[in-house]
Nucleic acid binder design. Structure first.
Lengths: 239, 239
DNA sequence: AAGTGGTCTAGACCACGGC
DNA sequence: CCGTGGTCTAGACCACTTC
């Protein structure tokens, strides 16, 4: 059979897409066999190596488990460790609905350290947005996000509707790739304490994030102060 | 050429091993080409697909970068994000020498919650070791580690010589695989404060780790309290 | 134009798992 | 025992980068 790629997608990706669709659609549940290499090869009229490649990649992504001598099975749903998620997405994973109240929205040009973190010249104009974050109807965190003033089309109104992540991705075509975070502990000063309805001096988890886009550049700087009694960070580390 | 595997290792792993050796040995530096698929195939008298597999796996592990049309190059040295490291290893990465002082060493059987975390029956005998951790000559953290009493051959003396990780790996043949961590912030109570020479009420980073071995079971539970002014957690998250 | 990685073929043998 | 994934062969064409 000649190399025939009806549409643009490589054959192995089409096989993956079909398997993924059957998982999302619920026809395949965790533990179910997805079919052997040889089986998939026949069905998709493809060589065994190609079917194998499709399954091997899915395994690497954690979608399936492969056991020699046994077969390839849908992997149990995995907890999303070390995933970069918007505040809304994080809460959704815990069964809560997130909301925000904007505290301030301004252009600033006197934050040289933050400009440097975003690989911009000192004195660059930055958009600075402060928001109080709610989970359910409890205040969880105070978040301050800085980004290049190029994004100043991000009006307050638009931010109150959708999440910053989705606005960036859809309106600006920026796809976020990864974030480096520094995490430490601090103590609530008066203003933060009152915003979060916690006593002055209560412990807070402080997270400083630099979020990078796929084009490689640092795009967002986020400073978050999280109520320690409502927020636990989950991390998985590998040897 | 017949399938000949002189020793036990698959051909593609031998190719990888040779490349890794040349990188470790300094003959190949970041940015250097490691040779094309076809080239490696000829050298190792192996089919192109096999050479390709070797390079593809090395790329997945972050050892090399592959650029279509250009070649395969040694990847720049990567910062080890999200790596499970012993206290000693962590400090070494920051150019410090770590040391410990053992605070207590005991067998306990009244920690059902921790036993459960280690997938042991409630009431199981556990080895509980408390240590004060120093970086240079400053106290950094108080760490309490719990593990099954099966490891009670871990004498105090042995622990004061080598790191717990290395004793486990070398004396018990346990290889650690990954750790799940819960991170939050808390406040130093009197005893902890005096051990760490910080004021009562100072913020601490609290890290609870369950460390899993390659055989799949949770093996270690570690509760760490880290001086927030001396310790920052670095994490990378991916989209 | 030459060389590279990305995809693919149509098979093969081996080691292992479950029956 | 039979089927599975793991490894491997000896090529091929395509899309891309570099020169």
């Amino acid at each position: 059979m000649s190399r025939d790629r009806r549409n643009g997608a490589p054959a192995y990706k089409k096989i993956q897409a079909l398997i993924l669709k059957r998982i999302e659609g619920g026809q395949l549940k965790p533990g179910d066999a997805v079919g052997s290499e040889r089986e998939l090869a026949k069905i998709h009229r493809v060589s065994p190596m190609t079917a194998r490649h499709a399954l091997a990649c899915l395994e690497r992504e954690g979608v399936v488990d492969r056991r020699r001598g046994a077969g390839t099975f849908v992997a149990p749903p995995k907890i999303h460790f070390n995933k970069l998620m918007s505040f809304t997405e994080q809460l959704a994973g815990r069964g809560l609905t997130g909301s925000s109240r904007m505290l301030s929205y301004a252009l600033v040009d006197d934050e040289p350290e933050i400009a440097a973190r975003l690989a911009l010249p000192a004195g660059s104009r930055l958009l600075k947005i402060q928001r109080l974050r709610f989970g359910g109807d409890e205040a969880f965190a105070v978040e301050t996000v800085y980004l290049s003033a190029d994004f100043s089309g991000l009006t307050r109104a638009r931010l109150e509707r959708g999440s910053l992540f989705s606005v960036l991705e859809h309106q600006y075509g920026v796809t976020l790739a990864h974030a480096d975070e520094e995490i430490d502990a601090t103590i609530a000063e008066a203003k933060t304490a009152s915003l979060l309805s916690i006593p002055y001096g209560a412990p807070l988890l402080r997270i400083r994030q630099v979020i990078f886009s796929t084009t490689g550049g640092p795009t967002l700087f986020v400073l978050g102060l999280y109520r320690s009694d409502r927020h636990t960070l989950l991390i998985r580390r590998f040897r």
